[in-house]
Nucleic acid binder design. Structure first.
Length: 230
DNA sequence: ACATTAACGATGA
DNA sequence: TCATCGTTAATGT
């Protein structure tokens, strides 16, 4: 089984594959496969079986739910280079959220059987998955605090800076391909307030707003602004 | 008050 | 041409 150069690069720059034995790596390379999705495509609708773990080779996806009236809430944005979906695979339940491409995206699929085999075979892989879950839990705790206590610009700063969490989202890319609409969904604000908050952050030279994306200029200060007053 | 939705024209890709 | 942006007006809590 020959993998694409992009998928090979993703495996090389991710932390966990380096800890696998040759045998484990061989099975992973045999079982993993990839698929592309256009922007706006629903990759997995809510309620479908959670039978894969994912790596995002390129693009940007979000995890959200859509209410009966059509309105949607985004729970997480996932930039390229990230691995996600372990929570749903570990539970024997249908996927509780839908997975949607918000840019043209290419995903790697690790079948559930392979994922669970790796968990049993490799303690370092298990540890990686535990760390993922722990960081996600920490993110949501901090998110609740942030949303209850801070003003709009700090909420936007928090959601953007968390996309650079080194465990969950190891990408070093400074440009986030997110529209202001999607940033609003991610931080729980209207697009108008998101627009205002983004321009405040741009005035502080923490980021710059581009067409359809934001460029992070000063990640340490953006993080600081998300957590404290300045 | 304050935030949200609706709606508009302008503009970038 | 279509998505996105920046703004204003209307609406809701």
């Amino acid at each position: 089984m020959s993998l694409s150069p992009e998928l090979t690069t993703l495996l090389e720059k991710s932390r966990w594959p380096a800890t696998l034995t040759a045998e484990q790596m061989a099975r992973l390379r045999h079982d993993i496969y990839e698929k592309s999705f256009p922007s706006g495509a629903i990759i997995y609708p809510r309620g479908t079986p959670a039978d894969h773990w994912f790596g995002l080779i390129e693009g940007m996806i979000k995890v959200d739910t859509v209410a009966q009236d059509g309105r949607s809430t985004t729970f997480a944005g996932v930039p390229s280079g990230s691995w996600f979906g372990e929570g749903a695979v570990l539970k024997n339940e249908p996927r509780p959220y839908s997975i949607v491409a918000i840019r043209d995206s290419k995903l790697a699929f690790v079948p559930k059987q392979t994922f669970e085999w790796l968990l049993q075979q490799s303690t370092s892989f298990s540890r990686f998955v535990i760390d993922q879950l722990n960081w996600r839990c920490g993110y949501y705790v901090a998110l609740v605090e942030n949303r209850r206590l801070r003003e709009a610009s700090a909420r936007v700063a928090f959601c953007l800076s968390e996309l650079f969490n080194p465990q969950l989202y190891p990408s070093t890319e400074q440009t986030l391909p997110l529209s202001q609409e999607e940033i609003g969904r991610l931080s729980g604000l209207s697009r108008q307030n998101t627009n205002k908050a983004l321009r405040e952050l741009a005035d502080m030279k923490l980021l710059s707003v581009e067409y359809g994306s934001v460029v992070i200029l000063d990640l340490p200060r953006l993080r600081k602004f998300a957590h404290h007053d300045e």
